[in-house]
Design a protein around this nucleic acid. Structure first.
Lengths: 358, 358
DNA sequence: TTGTAGGCGTTATCAA
DNA sequence: TTGATAACGCCTACAA
């Protein structure tokens, strides 16, 4: 009585199990009347077919999975929605799976492909640092979204779609420089990050160098592993740390909008006005930055385009229409209220001071 | 060559399948040497056991599922993390499942229970308006987190953990009244919402009534179905609408912090200073509100407590230590920068406008 | 300690 | 149009 199966239904209907199966799966060769009758009984008895059993038999699932590491990253929400939508449009179902921070997304993908007979995978978040040999075990095509090129590992066997993080990072830091800022603090990911965080920091360094500004390690705040994430709280904490260390800077570049928003609060509490005393710029182009006060200057990633291209590319791969490629999209510098031209100290309208005397 | 199974491994190792199974599942009765050898071969060949087949046999999974409707709701992120953590602590695994807005969470739960042999379910988000009869089909215990009591439907068969939304809503609106505000606009969920949105709006009405203030329908903005969500963008849009309709109010109550944050931006763009010209209060106690400028006065839900209690209650039910109950937690009025005493127009102390125009 | 065989709940193949 | 029956890949008695 606990687990009602297809057999129970068959018995109750006085038909064979295959007929019940046909009724459930909209098979053509079944008498409409029998079908109706069976469906009726199913509805009444509350029978729910067992998906494990189904998957076991099924060969073709017309499904792909979207594996997301760091689902709470606000930057992903739009991307996830778009990917789901685009996948539906291809008449495929999209299985969304959260990947824990310490979980191996590749292993999970391997399991999932077998379990659900998937035809493709999209990876979002994390840095996907897996040896090529292991990547090859994935028997279905995959695309990595918004992660950006990897340095250390051999790269991906699958496709990838993202902005050129180094270049875009260069762009926004160069913009800050163009405003006259020369002491630009930066909030970045953990020091051992080899992926996005590193690329964006590289872009920062290159931009400084390009302008003939020396790199000052004391202006760099790295996330602390196990403590910080791309969150407002971390941006706040990291900026506090910077301030407490007595760093002096006229602009702050946060490698993510979330960090930038947290930074603004920390600055305000230290009596530093944004942008009068300190310009703040982020990266990503989150909605939140648009509505924040002051609204945030940022490097906007074309999230929707990236998501669409990700799905498009994946289906090209599934249909064997092309080989895995690396697609790059242009980001867009969006200047809003949080940045302004550099002014020397007494020059500032409100005359606030930041960075205490050492 | 495509799908390698346990049989292939057995053959390759020259042993029976049960021996391979034993090796994989840490069974005691197996020769350590054989085990090691088998594991070696498995690693080399990249064999991944099929979970569908496993689940099919499995009886006891020591797993529960967390079904979340509206995963991008920022209020849920902490709750999700806590629930996952607490579940692990019970030595259970927690399967996180996204539920689409138009998807039926109960049906999904029914499927999942069969598919994965779950022992319990936690529902987060949505309004869970399912007839009692269908709820009874769920053969495992379930708890509804943060949703609050339902009016229309018979209620839940499972447990529930939340704040008393009506009461807490009353609390914060009463606070606004206590500051002298009498024209309090409100941003709330869709007009036909029968769950949280309605309860919070009820609280608003009761608070006004209690203070002898007439309810003014022109000060209420409902979300538009299919367009609005609990997002900054919606808060912005709804407030714009209010402003364009020429509504007059000295305070604005948003039934969610996200809406409140978007509202602040809309007010600013209309030249209305917060809190000088208009006080703004939210609901939830999001981190974002804390870091926002001005920081947001809100009714903070004890998210962590609620999450912990949810898990605790679920396991009480699983272990049959108690019957499903409705647990309520007290919210906390957190007064921050976005609210201040009512002043008539020319009265404002700060009067001037700092920051730039628009 | 190991191997064989049966079954988990479906779907697909084949006769009928 | 239907109904047996053989897989699907794994686990687990039970026998060896």
């Amino acid at each position: 009585m606990d687990t009602v199966t297809i057999k129970d239904i068959a018995r109750k209907c006085g038909v064979g199990v295959s007929t019940v199966s046909r009724a459930m799966n909209n098979h053509p060769d079944i008498n409409p009347k029998t079908k109706e009758m069976i469906l009726q009984v199913i509805a009444e008895s509350g029978f729910v077919p067992n998906n494990s059993a189904r998957n076991l038999k099924r060969v073709d699932a017309r499904a792909v999975a979207l594996l997301v590491k760091g689902m709470d990253n606000m930057f992903f929400t739009d991307i996830i929605h778009t990917i789901e939508k685009e996948t539906q449009e291809q008449k495929y179902s999209c299985i969304l799976q959260q990947v824990e921070e310490d979980e191996n997304e590749l292993e999970l993908a391997l399991e999932l492909v077998k379990e659900k007979r998937l035809r493709g995978i999209i990876f979002l978040g994390g840095n996907f640092a897996h040896p090529e040999e292991l990547q090859r075990r994935l028997t279905v095509p995959f695309v990595i979204s918004t992660i950006g090129q990897l340095e250390k590992a051999g790269g991906y066997i699958g496709g990838s779609v993202s902005v050129d993080n180094r270049k875009e990072s260069f762009k926004i830091v160069d913009y800050l420089c163009s405003l006259g800022h020369r002491q630009i603090a930066v909030l970045t990911s953990a020091e051992d990050d080899e992926s996005i965080g590193k690329l964006r920091l590289d872009g920062y360094r290159q931009a400084l160098e390009n302008r003939g500004i020396a790199f000052d390690p004391s202006l760099v705040v790295y996330m602390e592993p196990e403590i910080d994430r791309y969150s407002l709280a971390s941006g706040y904490r990291m900026t506090k740390k910077l301030l407490e260390a007595g760093a002096r800077f006229s602009a702050l570049y946060a490698t993510a909008d979330t960090l930038a928003l947290g930074a603004c609060r920390a600055l305000k509490e230290a009596g530093v006005e944004v942008p009068a005393d300190c310009s703040v710029a982020g990266f990503d182009g989150l909605d939140a930055g648009k509505y924040y006060i002051p609204s945030l200057t940022t490097l906007e990633q074309p999230a929707e385009e990236i998501a669409e291209a990700t799905v498009r590319h994946l289906f090209q791969l599934i249909r064997k229409k092309e080989k895995p490629r690396r697609l790059f999209f242009e980001g867009k510098l969006v200047v809003r209220e949080s940045t302004q031209e550099y002014r020397t100290r007494g020059d500032s309208a409100t005359g606030g001071n930041h960075g205490r005397e050492n």
